[in-house]
Design a protein around this nucleic acid. Structure first.
Lengths: 217, 217
DNA sequence: TAAAGTCTGTTGTATTTACAACGAAAGTGA
DNA sequence: TCACTTTCGTTGTAAATACAACAGACTTTA
């Protein structure tokens, strides 16, 4: 377990907790380590989750199959990231989580994480806050994305996204962290159609852009 | 404050906590009550949030304005519901929260909620878990909805949603909690187009339905 | 430096969707 | 029971989108 301490240190769950303190807390939080071969399932649809899970090494894929057998990838998980947090409220999980490479996962007992023990773990409260903030951040990311994708037209999606980026930058000029294909995937539209729409908006004087740099007018 | 105790009791934040215990905790959690006239703002874009907020009475609207001035409603908040949780990680809020009617909001100091005090509040741990589960549930709802809306075509959105409902019901026959207009709004598509698509899917033998009852084939 | 690969804009076509409008059926209330 | 409302399916048309294919600019790499 000790050898994953630096991965755990980089994890949001242990932000502001030193490596020594992490090691001291592992027992307190009933940490369990488990290895998965590529292709093996970490969680399967219908199971329930009662542990806080962190990927220590490898890579995971969260997948969903629909009734007619079409598989789609929901998201990927990288080392240090938490996963399955949304199911801690007790709902059965609706997706499969599978190892994309040989992977190691560290599980913490959720009840123990959320309940402060006597006084043995001075940093327990910090971990609770961290977990909460991590969930809070995920939440924010989801709400934000949903806000963009809910729009009906490509133009509206672009306006929603670009407006937000301008707000975040505090300026009408800003750079986005996506290339065209990535932006299209993020907004869930076709790249070429989006590219065309961007140019139309440019021609109408709504904005200017150069590669990933945009200016709203 | 006492007069809102039954609303708070019905809130997810205080699930499994008795009314007496709630009253005892109000001071511990540094609860503050504030009234808003219709149209007044509870939060404004750019502010930061450091309190857990529960609507005690009235109704709130979460709104967003884009760069070009188009306003859109993100969600509404009913009495007993938590709001603004996604911003507790410290990010500036990107939306306005306004009172749709005269409203009363109860704020709890987030730091106090997330940090257990000595021993004065035996139910503090329960509240922390409640808050966490509330956030977790919101998260799940968002991921699920995003999964549906991300699909490109109306048919795929319907298949994604209906598949999930069948899984949840544990049967290929189930009833959905929406009428057609509500389902269309939820999936972010046009009602009549969706209605037509449903009938096409029925004619192709993919499913059967009667009002809100569906059977997948 | 040449070649291969990537990113972006552009275009035409087929498909899908939004929108508006309407009628039938079911439900509601006086 | 009768008017009124709501819900749902249906249709035609205009608009938007996906898809495929390609060319030019730029980057990477051998």
């Amino acid at each position: 377990m000790k050898k994953y301490a630096d991965v755990l240190k980089g994890s949001k769950l242990f932000a502001n907790v030193s490596e020594d303190e992490i090691l001291a807390m592992l027992a307190c939080l009933d940490a369990k380590e488990r290895h998965y071969k590529e292709g093996e399932y970490v969680f399967r649809q219908g199971e329930t989750v009662d542990s806080v899970s962190v990927l220590a090494e490898g890579a995971l894929l969260v997948q969903a199959d629909d009734y007619w057998g079409n598989r789609s990838i929901i998201t990927s998980v990288s080392p240090g990231e938490l996963f399955g947090q949304a199911y801690l409220a007790g709902e059965a999980i609706m997706n499969d989580v599978a190892a994309a490479k040989d992977s190691t996962v560290v599980f913490f007992d959720a009840k123990r994480v959320l309940t402060t023990c006597s006084s043995a773990c001075p940093f327990h409260n910090q971990v609770i806050r961290n977990l909460f903030f991590a969930l809070s951040e995920t939440n924010l990311r989801l709400v934000t994305k949903l806000g963009h994708i809910q729009k009906r037209t490509t133009r509206e999606k672009l306006m929603s996204y670009l407006s937000l980026m301008a707000k975040k930058a505090g300026s009408n000029s800003f750079t986005i962290p996506f290339n065209r294909q990535e932006l299209a995937d993020f907004l869930s539209v076709d790249r070429s159609a989006m590219s065309a729409e961007l140019c139309r908006m440019r021609d109408e004087g709504l904005l200017r852009f150069n590669k990933s740099s945009f200016t709203l007018m």
